[in-house]
Amino acid sequence: MDKDSPTLPVFGIKRHRMTTDGTGVSTLVGAYGCPLKCRYCLNPLAWNPETLKKCIPMSPETLYEKVKIDALYFLATGGGITFGGGEALLHADFIRQFRKVCGPDWTLTVETSLNVPSAKLEKVLDVVNDYIVDIKDLEPSVYKAYTGMPIDNTLLNLKLLLEKVSLDHVYIRVPKIPEYNTDAHIQQSVTKLKNMGFKNIEVFPYVVRQ
């Protein structure tokens, strides 16, 4: 492993995902780390310190060797790698380097809340194809209450996507968050996103684990 090469703390890889990460067959790569602490986080592994002990640090080359087993499926169906977690954009340097390793033909997708410094997003704009955004709620007070973080970075990055990315490649998910947002909040978020120009917007319920 190149000492200077960025590494990805991988806690899971899921092959053969279909109809969940955009077009084609994809492999989901789960990486540790998230700036948010959402109450209903579906993947607390992504920020539980115990997970980090079990993560495998992978270089872009190592990951490529691992996932290229499905290259033919990717090429045939327009699929590729989906970086999830956690917050995929925390690993922007890695994703950028991974693109160099995997070449131009695979579709690279990030699952993100966009709550990262814009510099992170800027780093991947020319290497990532699709963005799947879990927006939480656009009402700042709801957002802060649910995630523990202010919404500012998210709003800045939404604008950045509007400016730099074809909106056909941005999929925004607006969750129904029990005890945090209401139908009115959700509708306001959807309306605001539509007014901004986003097209692919989906409302969905969070699954609350007991």
């Binding site: 890889i13 899921k14 998910r173």
Partner: peptide, 28 residues
């Protein structure tokens, strides 16, 4: 998927289908 008639009932009935919960689904 349609040729193999393999779209699952769950997916067909999912509201606003297209994407599952994105922050999960990593098998460990």
């Amino acid at each position: 998927a349609s040729l193999t008639a393999c779209a699952s009932e769950t997916e067909n009935n999912a509201p606003d289908s297209g994407y599952e919960d994105i922050s999960g689904n990593v098998d460990v």
